[in-house]
Design a binder for these strands. Structure first.
Length: 487
RNA sequence: GCCGCCUUAGCUCAGUUGGUUAGAGCGCUUGAUUGUGGAUCAAGAGGUCCCCCGUUCGAACCGGGGAGGUGGUACCA
């Protein structure tokens, strides 16, 4: 009983999970609001779904194994059914669409943002919990819907404050590569997957690395061997020619692709790009905003037609001078088979998704977050603890003026309280003690000004006596007077 | 999963060939200043040297195993 060694847990976080502070949250909120505004104006409806779904609804993670949490966070409900935290917002949308299929006006245009969770090894800029923001059209078979989503993605980038040339939406169509692989006799699912993986590594490994992965395989620096797709030399050349067929205007890319992919499946892909190009041109989407790029892969699994990625062309460096790589901040495409898993009925769908947390981090690093500075803060010091009621009234008057204000409710003398105000980054401290009560005044200390002046002052005695950063206002109407000083 | 690096105070890190009582800077607390933050000075608090086993008269230090962190790579609906 009398153990004086009480168990003290170490304060720590599971890896890949972040505490997010106010400035970070403001950055994320600004992004979500900008994107939501665009989605709303384009006629998308907001939807929220729960964090948990039944594991079988999320996809391939069936609760057959003892441990269905490969990649997801899963637990068993009290009826022993496996539930899992959603790993994206698309699977819940497919579930919702299937569940309410009759009630929805098709195409169902919905947007959604919220946390998603992935039980994988985290890395730099990669977390196990993060926010996604999606817009999708469910039940829209035509390429027009894809073109719309692409234009929407481009508009979101502009809405968050990015200028032309600072971002690009890169568009491809899965059927182009499918056509090529088919004609090479490499259309089998397994080979196709390996080819997609290899192409996806183009930016990191370069042409030569991809060449190895398309052929026999590649050994990386650590000595680990990655098996290749096993294509022959002629086929590798054709695939590489294809993925390097980008560059120039959308029309030029299409012209270049026609002879490479031929008719059949690939031809359908070319037609899709032609239709997308026509719509983008009609919407005055610039050639540098949306680019056709055959090297875009965008995930592996469920995309069936047009796919696209949104990338930032900006660069920044860490404090240590290392360049920050932003890479892709979002993307999307057509997925025609997702809802059919539930209903058996083919439901075409297309959508866009971006990672709010990663995007916000990039914009913060670039110092491009709008409205990220909080409003000025005033702290009313608790000079005499028996006059707390008065201090709360003063704070209320400041709030009524539209300022952020709080009465100090902690402990400690004035020195401590000013130190608190300083650390909070407050702009002003309001001091009302015996003297001020006598004279019906308030003393205002300009903390920011004081901090600046203090840098030049050597003698502590002098600045304490002079108090150059302080001024006195009449008690009546002090809040208004202070507010006016701020403008 | 595979490969590398790291783990000593709240934080960043020193710590000699293995030697007795493990240090610094920053931060924190208190005071110089009983109603004044950011300068300066002084004092103080704060440690399972990641854990276990072994070698040794003696281990923060050497050996083995484990855990955690981190970077790369693989996978990523």
């Amino acid at each position: 009983m009398s153990s004086n060694k009480a168990f003290k847990p170490k304060a720590r976080r599971p890896r890949g999970f972040e505490d997010r502070l106010s400035h970070h949250l403001r950055a994320e909120q600004a992004l979500i609001q900008a994107a939501s505004g665009v989605y709303e104006r384009w006629g998308f409806e907001r939807l929220e779904t729960p964090a948990f779904e039944f594991a079988d609804c999320l996809g391939k993670f069936l609760p057959d194994d003892d441990r269905p949490n490969e990649g997801v966070f899963a637990l068993q409900d009290d009826d022993e059914q496996w539930m899992a935290l959603r790993y994206d917002l698309t699977a819940p949308l497919a579930r919702f669409s299937a569940e309410h299929f009759q009630d929805l006006a098709k195409p169902f245009r919905r947007y959604q943002y919220g946390d998603v969770w992935r039980n994988e090894k985290p890395g730099p800029g990669r977390f196990r919990q993060f926010i996604q923001c999606d817009a999708d059209s469910v039940g829209a078979p035509g390429t027009a819907a894809d073109a719309e989503i692409i234009a929407l993605a481009s508009e979101v980038m502009a809405a968050v404050g990015l200028e032309r040339g600072e971002y690009a939406v890169r568009v491809n169509d899965r059927r182009l590569l499918d056509g090529i692989l088919e004609s090479l006799g490499a259309g089998a699912a397994e080979a196709r997957l390996k080819v997609l993986r290899a192409i996806d590594k183009m930016d990191r490994l370069g042409r030569h690395g991809v060449e190895l992965l398309l052929g026999a395989g590649r050994k990386d620096e650590s000595g680990d061997f990655t098996p290749g797709a096993g294509l022959d030399a002629a086929s590798i050349t054709r695939v590489l020619d294809f993925i390097e067929a980008g560059g120039g205007t959308r029309g030029e890319v299409i012209e270049r692709l026609i002879p490479i992919v031929g008719a059949g499946v690939g031809g359908a892909g070319v037609s899709a790009l032609e239709e997308i190009a026509a719509i983008l041109n009609a919407l005055n989407v610039d050639e540098d905003q949306v680019i056709f790029d055959p090297s875009i892969v965008r995930g592996l699994g469920y995309y069936t037609g047009p796919v696209f990625e949104v990338e930032l062309n900006l660069s920044a460096t860490y404090e240590n001078g290392q360049p920050i790589r932003f890479g892709s901040v979002g993307g999307g495409g057509r997925y025609d088979d997702l809802v059919a898993r539930f209903t058996g009925q083919a439901v075409p769908a297309t959508g866009f998704s971006f990672g709010v947390s990663r995007f916000a981090a990039a914009l913060s690093a670039l110092d491009r977050i709008k409205d990220s500075a909080p409003d000025p803060l005033v702290i009313v010091l608790a000079v005499d603890k028996d006059h707390m009621a008065t201090y709360f009234q003063l704070a209320a008057q400041l709030r009524a003026e539209g300022l952020r204000a709080e009465a100090f409710v902690g402990g400690g003398n004035m020195g401590k309280q000013l130190k608190y105000a300083d650390r909070r980054g407050a702009d002003f401290a309001v001091i009302v003690g015996e003297d001020e009560r006598q004279n019906q005044t308030v003393t205002i200390k300009d903390l920011k000004l004081g901090a600046r002046l203090a840098q030049q002052i050597e003698d502590n005695k002098a600045w304490r006596e002079d108090q150059p950063a302080q001024f006195t206002l009449p008690l009546a109407g002090f809040a208004k007077a202070l507010h006016e000083r701020l403008v």
